[in-house]
């Protein structure tokens, strides 16, 4: 590229071509179609799913199928279970990761760098592969078939600590800290009254992602939860599917009912999630 010697006039931003909108439209359609199809089958019945050419319009059978979903498995209870677990993990991660991130970002203590390196390393280990001993430990604690078995392990998020540390490093400058110390604030007060409020948006986004991940988690609840009243909504969907005499309409209804709460929440906080991903993008 040749460099310009004279300052180029500020050109107006390029007009967006129509094929850009076409491409994006296709992307959106692809993203949303499976959900739409789920909705169609959930509001009609299995026979619709087996019709060729495929039916693409929703029907009015939703209430009947929804009712069946709620009677086949304790679905309402499973929604509550999922909510409890996801909120606890979301809030828990937001607070705990902010705490630890603050410590790594702004506090001086021995082995700080080594310990942080350890945290970063654990990000690469998929703890899923140790499910068998994890199950043995949980059962020796007597936590099989409980919600705390899902919540407590989910509170440790190495990525969350990494993320909060990034944000705290940039948001909190050292002069502010020093001034606070001179004023006699102790560490907790600095965290709770200065640091945390500054990164509340970031913590909120972290909590959101923690919530979504916990809501959609499958393997661990599948192993640990046994009685249907303790199911999270993901396991409840699976239970609908593994009925010997499967009814696809039922399974899709359940799937749809399990997705709707997240969709509703997404309408309100989706923008935050989008900016959360984009703010935290890997910067070289």
């Amino acid at each position: 590229m040749t460099s310009k010697t004279r300052r180029s006039r500020r050109r107006p931003a390029e007009r967006v071509r129509w094929w850009t909108y076409l491409g994006l439209g296709l992307a959106v359609a692809a993203s949303l179609f499976p959900l739409y199809w789920m909705f169609v089958v959930a509001t009609t019945d299995s026979a619709t799913a087996y019709k060729l050419p495929p039916a693409v319009l929703p029907g009015g059978n939703f209430l009947h199928l929804a009712d069946l979903v709620f009677t086949t498995v304790p679905f309402l209870r499973s929604l509550a279970n999922s909510l409890i677990v996801a909120v606890c993990i979301g809030v828990g991660q937001a607070v705990l990761c902010a705490l630890a991130g603050f410590a790594f970002a702004k506090l001086r203590f021995r082995f700080r760098n080594t310990l942080f390196l350890f945290v970063v390393l654990t990000m690469t280990v998929p703890t899923q592969l140790a499910v068998i001993p994890q199950y043995l430990i949980i059962s020796s604690l007597g936590w099989v078939d409980t919600l705390q078995a899902l919540i407590v392990p989910g509170l440790a998020s190495a990525f969350g600590i990494f993320w909060m540390r990034q944000h705290l490093s940039t948001a909190l400058n050292d002069e502010l800290l020093q001034a606070a110390r001179i004023d006699g604030a102790n560490t907790w007060q600095i965290f709770w009254r200065i640091a945390f409020p500054l990164v509340r948006p970031a913590a909120f986004v972290l909590g959101l992602f923690g919530f979504v991940t916990a809501w959609n988690d499958f393997l661990w609840p599948f192993i640990v939860l046994k009685s249907p009243e303790m199911y999270t909504v993901q396991i409840a969907i699976k239970a609908l599917q593994s009925n010997r005499d499967i009814d696809l309409g039922l399974a899709m209804s359940g799937s749809f009912l399990a997705t709707v709460p997240l969709l509703v929440i997404f309408v309100f906080v989706g923008r935050r999630m989008v900016s959360g991903i984009m703010d935290g993008a890997f910067k070289g």
């Binding site: 931003a13 390029e14 007009r15 967006v16 850009t20 994006l24 992307a27 959106v28 993203s31 949303l32 499976p34 959900l35 199809w37 789920m38 979504v212 809501w215 959609n216 499958f218 909504v233 993901q234 969907i237 699976k238 599917q241 696809l248 399974a251 899709m252 359940g254 799937s255 749809f256 399990a258 997705t259 997240l262 969709l263 997404f266 989706g270 923008r271 999630m273 989008v274 991903i277």
Partner: peptide, 29 residues
């Protein structure tokens, strides 16, 4: 594109698959 209209809507709808549950996705697909 700076002058992209409905940018927020595009971005949000692309994130919808991410929040869909894996179990539900598998049944549909």
């Amino acid at each position: 594109h700076v002058r992209l209209r409905f940018a927020v809507l595009f971005r949000m709808s692309m994130l919808v698959p991410y929040i869909t549950s894996v179990a539900a996705t598998t049944i549909v697909f």
